[in-house]
Simulated scan of single mutants.
Amino acid sequence: MDVPAPGLTTSPRAEIEVDLGAVRHNVRRLRELVWGTEPGSAGQVMVVVKADGYGHGMRQVARAARQAGAQWLGVATPEEALELRAAGDGGRLLCWLAAPGQDFAPLVSADVDVTAYSVAQLEEVVRGAREAGRPARLQLKLDTGLSRGGAPREDWLALATGAKHAQDEGDVVVTGLWSHLACADEPAHPANQSQLDAFADGVALVRDVGLEPEVCHLANSAGALLHPAARHDLVRLGIAVYGFSPAPDVVSGSELGLVPAMTVRARVVIAKDLHAGDGISYGHTAHATEGMRVALVPLGYADGIPRHASSRAEVLLGGARAPVVGRVCMDQLVVAAPEAQAGDEVVLFGAGVHGEPTATEWARWCGTIDYEIVARMRGRQHRTWTGEEQE
């Protein structure tokens, strides 16, 4: 668990609980949905644990994912990759977001698969490999229509031929070719077929120059679940691993058999009765229309609670939903709860099985996506992990 502040022995004012059993369940369930239940399926799974495991704890989720059979882990930054290696993870690990001037030698030495978006980045990888004294595991990323990371189409040939030359020189081993879908959560969007076709062109191109990547991968969670043609050799599973549908307007997480892994709870600091007309929180954007009781919850936007939740979201308090009233502050928020008492447990969101809101509901209330809701929960809460499985 996270290390408590020195001298603190009382129960936490607010906490994040992560169920690693749910993570393992979700990885196994997703494998079944994507690759089926037949033994010996050739399809591989990468679990994406970037951004501290979407707020769930990168090292803990990585370990649970490995236990559930994930052959690969995926992270964005070099720092994340090296943290996982320092924590003892020795399996296949892909890193994809390095800025110009990155020293790739530590990544090469740590046996991390690195990504090149351009010929210039390929040259940096080669320098890192020579410094490390061993070939770099290299994957090439193509931009097939997201217009974000990856080589633009006009540069594909130069990147592929440069990688082939580097491989012939013994500086790299090209282990993968990949891209990322822009609209996979909208099955009818024309960009999906356009990107499938573009990626097929990219695969053909790299093979024409003499490269045979170990894995070709295009599908994120939504692509893996909704677009079978996008699966190729490996699927990259992100938000679905944490229990949420990547396309909630198409299919819910519960329909997929997924279990949200994160619960955020706190304790009421104080409860008080208001009179009709009393203003509530900063700016008095909410008022008591009649006599009402409110409870102070010690979580705010410094703890990851969206300010957009002001007078929109709900929590579970005393077995019933309680609305947030007034503005969410830096350290606290106020809810209306007729029976609230100091010390009562408040569940902001969780798996939804006890009547508590889910992160998906919070996302809708705040006009965002559940990815953001869970990933930002990394403030001052005490964090614990349940469902640990011993190696």
Rank of each mutant, 00 (worst) to 15 (best):
Y242M: 02
H275E: 13
L177C: 05
P39A: 14
G91F: 05
G55L: 05
H354Y: 09
E124P: 00
A340T: 12
Q341T: 08
P190F: 07
I369D: 14
Y282I: 04
V47M: 03
A182T: 04
K50G: 14
Q195L: 06
L181P: 03
V346T: 07
D143S: 03
P228L: 01
L159M: 11
A309V: 08
D89A: 00
E131A: 01
G128M: 00
V268E: 07
R327Q: 14
I280S: 07
V315E: 11
G101D: 08
P106R: 05
P78A: 10
V251K: 12
R24S: 12
G319F: 03
T77G: 13
R312T: 08
L142P: 11
G257E: 09
V173W: 05
E339H: 15
A70I: 11
E345N: 04
P260K: 07
G291K: 08
P4I: 11
E372T: 11
R207N: 15
D249L: 13
L226V: 15
P135C: 13
V315H: 09
T10A: 15
C329R: 04
G210Q: 12
R380Y: 15
V269M: 12
W178Y: 11
G57Q: 06
P260Q: 05
T144G: 03
S11W: 05
V203M: 12
A116N: 00
V294N: 13
D103G: 00
E83K: 00
I373Y: 02
R267S: 10
I16R: 09
V269A: 13
R29V: 15
V315Q: 05
V45M: 08
R134S: 12
A110N: 04
V108S: 06
F349T: 15
Q67E: 15
H227I: 11
P190G: 08
G257C: 14
Q44C: 12
V268D: 08
L299P: 02
H180K: 09
Q67W: 02
Y371S: 14
K272S: 14
I16E: 10
G43K: 10
R130N: 14
H227Y: 13
R148W: 03
E212A: 10
R265Y: 06
A86S: 08
W35T: 09
V47G: 07
L274T: 08
L256F: 02
A224T: 08
P306Q: 11
V294S: 08
A105N: 00
Y282M: 10
D168S: 01
Q102W: 04
D303C: 01
A51D: 11
L177Y: 06
E186M: 09
L8F: 10
G387I: 13
S147C: 06
L140Q: 02
A271E: 02
H180D: 09
A62P: 00
T263C: 04
E83Y: 01
W96G: 13
G326L: 01
H232E: 02
E214S: 01
P323G: 04
Y301T: 09
H275F: 14
R364F: 13
